[in-house]
Write a protein that binds this DNA or RNA. Structure first.
Lengths: 131, 131
DNA sequence: CAGTATCCATTAAGATACTG
DNA sequence: CAGTATCTTAATGGATACTG
């Protein structure tokens, strides 16, 4: 839908960096909301509205945009039930489930980073909690 | 320097998400260039120009912006030698070194993702290679 | 309920020229 | 060499109203 400048330096750099598996992986999980959405779906199937409530502060537009990308990237599955009112369920794919242990490590590293750089939270928090 | 709309929803969301150690960690390592820069500095001290040559295609402006952020975030150290012409060395901190095993896991996951989603590279590549 | 469509604001990234 | 400064473009994120 949007204009694509396939030959802009921006796009060239993006493609170049995506050849690196690591940059590629970071792009799939990056963005402001994706990891949070995936976290909400851990061990659970949720419908659109439930997801929106749990993520909190996300607009419907951003939620659907992120879900579409995650779906296209094979990280969530979308199941639409042909009922009225509509019901659509989202859940993690195995590929996404495989990435969970890595998030946990990153989370622990993030907490360590906070402590060592003095960016500590004003209150303690358990691993995995991310309201 | 730039205008800051501290109370925009954008900023509020950003702060909110940063309370999550995982989103926080992803923000520290995210962006187009950071992981690549950190990778170049693994086991090596490099000066500005060497870094620019190795990262390839990055502008001086972007490189210095990323380096400043990495320095402020305690991930690289900057050592300026008082000589003419100037010489500035960059190297990883222990905190950054601690994160390397996690990148490797993400990298492996990225490669797996490619295979399973049909986004495979047109040629094989070794782990850790990211020209 | 589960989205779309439209428009606007903010941030990230790049090109280029210049300086201590 | 190691940056700054300034300007432009591209991408992301948000508000709001509307629809099947």
């Amino acid at each position: 839908m949007g204009k694509r400048k396939l030959e802009s330096t921006n796009m060239i750099n993006e493609r170049h960096l995506d050849e690196c598996d690591l940059s590629y992986a970071l792009r799939k999980l990056g963005g402001r909301w994706k990891i949070l959405i995936l976290g909400k779906l851990e061990n659970k199937t949720l419908r659109f509205k439930e997801l929106k409530e749990r993520v909190g502060n996300i607009t419907e537009r951003m939620l659907i945009l992120q879900l579409k990308e995650l779906e296209a990237d094979g990280l969530v599955t979308r199941t639409a039930h042909p009922v009225v009112p509509p019901r659509v369920d989202y859940e993690l794919t195995q590929l996404a489930i495989d990435s969970i242990p890595i998030w946990r490590l990153l989370e622990v590293w993030g907490a360590q980073h906070r402590n060592e750089t003095g960016n500590s939270l004003p209150y303690p928090k358990e691993v995995g909690s991310c309201d």
